[in-house]
Design a protein around this nucleic acid. Structure first.
Length: 669
RNA sequence: GCUGCUGUAGCUCAGUGGUAGAGCGCGUCAUUGGUAAUGACGAGGCCGAGAGUUCAAUUCUCUCCAGCAGCACCA
C-alpha cells in the first residue's frame, strides 16, 4: 500500500491524494465548477501546470481567472505560443525563436522563410484568424521532459537554427521541457501553460504591430520580425485596453504641443526644440519655481561654458566613452574664401558640453576650499548637447539639445548621507507639487566602471543609508535595487514618477561619485591641514526641462495647473457693446499679475467657449451687457459645466489664488 | 545606428503616368449673439530633396533627408 500525499489548501484543510495525482485532480475532487475554472496551480509557491503530478506533500493554491495577475501572465504566454504556431502553420519554413508575455500582451520573434519578405502589418489579419482557429480547436497543451540532445536534434532536423543555438546553451543536467499543442506542434518552454488552447478567449487578443528586433537583443546579430499582440482574459478587458491606448494617444505631447501652440520641431534642427511663446512661458514658470526651491535648499547658481577643449573631456573620461555622441568642433576660423568653409584638419578639437559636471568641478577648484566651506552646492540650468542616435529621438522626450536642472554637491565623506537625505526630501516636495507619486530605485555598479570596489561599496551603502534615513526605503516608495544599472562612475538613486494614466517616467537622480573628483583632482583642506578628496553628488529633479514639460503635458492631458498655464484667463465678449468693459477687465487682471488675453472678435459666444476650451485655457471670463453694467464677470472654469457670476474684485482674488505656485501658496503646505 | 512604414495646403488626410482635391484653420463681407462650431465668398501647393526610366513623373525605380513604430543606445 502506497502512502497518500498530503495536499494543504489555502483554507487550511488537507486532502490526501494518491501518488501521481495532479492539481487538476484536486480541483476535480473539490468540485466540477472549480475543475472548470482552474487555469493552473501554485504548488509550494511555484506556478505549475494543472496536470503536472505532485512530487511530495505540497501546499496547493489553484489559480483561476480571479487571480488576475497570474491568469493574465498565463494567457499571454499561451497567446504567444499560439501566435508562433499560427505563423508556422501559415508560412512553413518560418523560424521561431522566443516569445514572452509583456505588460499588456505578448510578442514572438520570428524569421520569415527566405522565400518571402519579412512579415508586415498586412499579414496580421490572416495570422489572427489562424490563431482563432487554433484556440477553437482546443488543443491540449501537454508538458514533456526532454534531454538537451533530443532538443538539439529536433531543432536541427527542422532547420530551426535559432532554437538549436539556444538549446545548445541550455544546461545538460537540468530537466528541459517542451509543450505540445495537440500532437502536431511543440515549442521549447519552461512553462507553465493553461490546460488547453480553448481556455483562451478568441476575442480577447489583437495583433498590434510588427517591428524589428535583434536575435538575443544584440545589434550584431540577425534582425528578426517581432510580432506584437495585446492579450487579455476577455473581450471587455481588451476593449478597455484599446480605449486606454486611445486616451494615451490623445494626450500625446507632440499632438498637444502643436494644438496648444507650445513648440515645434523641424528638420533643420532635428532633435532640438523651437519653443513658442506659450510653451516657453511654461518653461519660465518651471524655471522660476526650481530657482526658488534651489535657493531655498542652499544651492548657488552658476553658468558655465557651452564649449570646452577636448582635453577636458579626455581627462573626465567622457571622451573615451561617449565621443561618438558628442558634437565636436574644430578650434579654428574656417577659410571662407573658397566656395564653402574649409577646415584644415589641424586644429584642436573642442566639444559642446554633453553634461555640466566637469565644468562644475573647475568652478569648485578655483581658489582653496576649506572643510569649513563644505558642503558646496553648485546649481546650473545647464544647456547640454548630445548627438543621440537618430532613431532614439522622440518629441520632447529624447532630444539632442536639452537643459537640465543640474547641480553638484561637493562634500566630505561624513556629509554624504545627510546631503542625499535632504535631496530625497526636496525631490519629494517637488514631485508632490505636480501631483506625481513615485518610486525610488538604487542602480548599482555596472560591469564596466571606473573606481575601486571599496569605493563602490561605500557609495552604494551611503545611498541606501540616506534613503533609509529619509524613511523611504520601503514598499510605499517602491524601494528596490537595480543591479548593474548604475553609471560608469557612480551608483545612482532614480526617481520613477507615475503619471495620471499609470505610466512611469524616470526623471530625478542623485549619484554619489568619487571618480570624477579624483580624475579632475578636486581637493579641499581638512581639519588636519591636509588635502582631501570631496565626494561629488550629481543630482537633478526635473531631469531636463524639455522632457519634464513633455511629461507634464501628458500627465495633465494639456490641462496644466493654473500656475503653469501659459494663458490663465481669457476675457470673451458676447456683444461689441461690452468691448470697453472687457478691455478694462483684462487690464485689471494683468495688473494683478494674471496672464490674460481678451477675445473681442465678432464671433458667437458658443464659438469662443468652444475654442478656448479646446485650447485648455483654465478660466474663461464672459462679459456681455449685463456684466458691463453690473461690474461683474461670468467665470467658467475648464472642466466645469456651470459658470458663476462674480464681482470683478472677487474674480481677481479667485484667479490670483488659483494661479499661485504651490511653493508660495499658503494652503498647499 | 538597425528593421519596417510614412512624407501632398498651416493642421488632418483623399487622389492621379498628362503638374492636384476635401474638412478644419486663415482672409473678406454679412450677422451683435448669453456658455463647446452663424452663413456666403475668397486666398493658399516646386505633391520632402536629388538622380534615373519615360514623349511626359507628385505618381514607377534608386539614393539621401526627416518623421512614425519597435529594437539597440541613453554619461
Amino acid at each position: 500500500m502506497t502512502e497518500l500525499l498530503k495536499i494543504s489548501l489555502p483554507d487550511g484543510s488537507v486532502r490526501e491524494m494518491p501518488p501521481g495525482s495532479t492539481p487538476g485532480d484536486v480541483a476535480a475532487a473539490i468540485g466540477p465548477g472549480l475543475a472548470k475554472a482552474a487555469l493552473a496551480a501554485r504548488v509550494d509557491g511555484e506556478v505549475r501546470d494543472l496536470d503536472r503530478p505532485f512530487e511530495c506533500d505540497s501546499e496547493l493554491a489553484l489559480i483561476t481567472a480571479k487571480d488576475e495577475d497570474e491568469a493574465l501572465e498565463l494567457a499571454r504566454h499561451d497567446f504567444a505560443h499560439v501566435l508562433a504556431e499560427a505563423v508556422q502553420a501559415l508560412y512553413p519554413g518560418t523560424q521561431i525563436t522566443f516569445g514572452p508575455a509583456t505588460d499588456d500582451g505578448f510578442y514572438y520573434d520570428v524569421m520569415a522563410p527566405p522565400s518571402r519578405e519579412p512579415f508586415g502589418m498586412d499579414d496580421l489579419p490572416a495570422i489572427e484568424e489562424k490563431m482563432r482557429e487554433i484556440i477553437k480547436a482546443d488543443k491540449l497543451l501537454k508538458r514533456e521532459v526532454w534531454t538537451r540532445q533530443q532538443l538539439i536534434e529536433k531543432w536541427e532536423s527542422e532547420g530551426e537554427s535559432f532554437k538549436a543555438e539556444w538549446a545548445k546553451e541550455l544546461p545538460e543536467d537540468e530537466e528541459l521541457t517542451v509543450y505540445w499543442s495537440g500532437d502536431d506542434w511543440l515549442d521549447m518552454c519552461r512553462g507553465p501553460h493553461l490546460p488547453s488552447t480553448g481556455r483562451l478567449d478568441p476575442q480577447a487578443f489583437k495583433l498590434m504591430r510588427v517591428a524589428g528586433a535583434y536575435w538575443r537583443g544584440d545589434q550584431k546579430n540577425a534582425q528578426l520580425t517581432r510580432i506584437y499582440g495585446t492579450g487579455w482574459l476577455n473581450k471587455k478587458q481588451l476593449n478597455a485596453h484599446l480605449h486606454r491606448l486611445g486616451e494615451a494617444a490623445k494626450r500625446d505631447h507632440r499632438k498637444l504641443g502643436r494644438e496648444m501652440d507650445l513648440f515645434h520641431l523641424q528638420e533643420e534642427a532635428h532633435g532640438s526644440v523651437f519653443w513658442h511663446p506659450k510653451g516657453y512661458r511654461i518653461w519660465r514658470e518651471l524655471e522660476a519655481y526650481m530657482r526658488r526651491r534651489m535657493d531655498g535648499g542652499g544651492y548657488r547658481e552658476i553658468k558655465t561654458p557651452q564649449v570646452m577643449d577636448a582635453r577636458q573631456w579626455e581627462q573626465s573620461g567622457h571622451w573615451g566613452k561617449y565621443r561618438e555622441n558628442m558634437f565636436v568642433i574644430p578650434d579654428e576660423v574656417p577659410n571662407t574664401e573658397d566656395e564653402g568653409p574649409v577646415i584644415s584638419g589641424e586644429a584642436d578639437w573642442m566639444a559642446l558640453k554633453p553634461m555640466n559636471c566637469p565644468a562644475h568641478v573647475l568652478v569648485f577648484k578655483q581658489g582653496i576650499t576649506s572643510y569649513r566651506d563644505l558642503p558646496i552646492r553648485l546649481g546650473e540650468m545647464g544647456c547640454c548637447h548630445r548627438n543621440e542616435p537618430h532613431g532614439a529621438l522622440h518629441g520632447l522626450m529624447r532630444v539632442r539639445q536639452f537643459t537640465q536642472d543640474d547641480a553638484h554637491i561637493f562634500c566630505t565623506e561624513e556629509q554624504v548621507v545627510e546631503e542625499v537625505e535632504k535631496f530625497c526630501e526636496l525631490a519629494d516636495s517637488v514631485y508632490k507639487h505636480f501631483g506625481f507619486t513615485y518610486e525610488i530605485k538604487l542602480a548599482t555598479r555596472p560591469e564596466q566602471r571606473f573606481g575601486s570596489d571599496a569605493d563602490w561599496d561605500k557609495a552604494e551603502q551611503e545611498l541606501r543609508d540616506a534613503v533609509a534615513a529619509a524613511g523611504m526605503a520601503n514598499d510605499e516608495y517602491g524601494w528596490e535595487e537595480l543591479p548593474g544599472e548604475g553609471a560608469f562612475y557612480a551608483p545612482k538613486l532614480e526617481w520613477h514618477l507615475t503619471d495620471a494614466i499609470g505610466r512611469t517616467w524616470q526623471v530625478g537622480t542623485i549619484q554619489s561619485d568619487r571618480v570624477l573628483p579624483e580624475r579632475l583632482d578636486a581637493t579641499y583642506v581638512g581639519e588636519d591641514g591636509g588635502r582631501h578628496r570631496p565626494v561629488m553628488l550629481h543630482r537633478a529633479i526635473f531631469g531636463s526641462y524639455e522632457r519634464f514639460i513633455g511629461i507634464l503635458i501628458e500627465h495633465f492631458a494639456g490641462r496644466l495647473p493654473v500656475w503653469l498655464a501659459p494663458v490663465q484667463a481669457v476675457v470673451a465678449t458676447i456683444v461689441s457693446d461690452a468691448d470697453v468693459y472687457a478691455k478694462d477687465v483684462a487690464r485689471r487682471l494683468k495688473t494683478a499679475g494674471i496672464r490674460v488675453e481678451s477675445d473681442l472678435r465678432n464671433e458667437k459666444i458658443n464659438y469662443k467657449v468652444r475654442e478656448h476650451s479646446l485650447a485648455k485655457v483654465p478660466h474663461l471670463l464672459v462679459v456681455g451687457k449685463r456684466e458691463a453694467e453690473e461690474g461683474t464677470v461670468a467665470m467658467r472654469t475648464l472642466g466645469e459645466k456651470e459658470q458663476r457670476v462674480l464681482p470683478l474684485d472677487e474674480a481677481i482674488a479667485v484667479l490670483t489664488e488659483a494661479g499661485t505656485p504651490p511653493d508660495i501658496s499658503t494652503d498647499a503646505g
